[in-house]
């Protein structure tokens, strides 16, 4: 089952809104804090660990068997570029977390290579976030986070962790890779929350 969520067709240019301080790009810049891992989809395993310690895992075939969605979303990078109407395919976090029992308010997302980012659990639910494997109809390229990345388009793009490996549900908030080095804990582009204290 595939559900298309988000925008349909191309919006008129006048309807495209940029958050404060952003400019539009039609390319897809590659930003990375380290080497790009060469990961095989077949060996992919995604885990979600609740605050109780209970661990849920999905292998690639498990993920592909879940209901899929095709969100079309705008991306906003904290380095000030925005890209309109990017088309993805993946699994809603609502689906992934449906059977995970938790009272946690926070998450710490981890990638292959050691990258981490913290996101409130509420920001991963209610149709706001996906685990994506396809971009513009093609398998997601390694430089853009393939085979599997997080997509949380209402926050700055550093929150959409590439090379996704695990999501830890936590009672306490723990700053991630950029958040602990001066970037904003939440990262709302519409409130221009780039740096700590913004």
């Amino acid at each position: 089952m595939i559900i298309s969520r988000g925008f349909h067709g191309r919006r008129p240019t006048a309807d495209r809104k940029l958050p404060p301080g952003q400019y539009e790009t039609t390319g897809f810049p590659v930003l990375s804090a380290g080497p790009t891992p060469r990961l095989s989809a077949a060996d992919t395993e995604l885990s979600v660990t609740a605050e109780t310690g209970r661990r849920h895992t999905w292998r690639w075939a498990d993920l592909m068997a879940l209901p899929s969605e095709r969100p079309t979303v705008d991306l906003h990078c904290v380095t000030k570029w925005s890209k309109f109407e990017t088309r993805w395919e993946g699994i809603s976090l609502d689906v992934l977390l449906a059977d995970v029992e938790t009272d946690a308010d926070h998450t710490l997302v981890s990638s292959h290579g050691g990258y981490t980012t913290n996101i409130p659990l509420a920001d991963l639910l209610d149709g706001k976030a996906w685990v994506v494997h396809t971009y513009e109809g093609e398998p997601l390229a390694p430089e853009h986070g393939g085979p599997l990345r997080l997509l949380v388009p209402h926050l700055y793009l550093w929150k959409s962790a590439k090379w996704l490996r695990s999501i830890e549900l936590r009672d306490e908030d723990e700053p991630g890779f950029w958040e602990s080095a001066g970037y904003h804990d939440y990262g709302d582009p519409w409130r221009e929350q780039r740096y700590r204290g913004d």
């Binding site: 990375s32 080497p35 790009t36 891992p37 060469r38 990961l39 292959h112 290579g113 390694p142 430089e143």
Partner: peptide, 10 residues
């Protein structure tokens, strides 16, 4: 660093 393979980077 893990034992993962890496692609050329910049």
């Amino acid at each position: 660093m893990t034992s993962e393979e890496h692609l050329p980077d910049d």
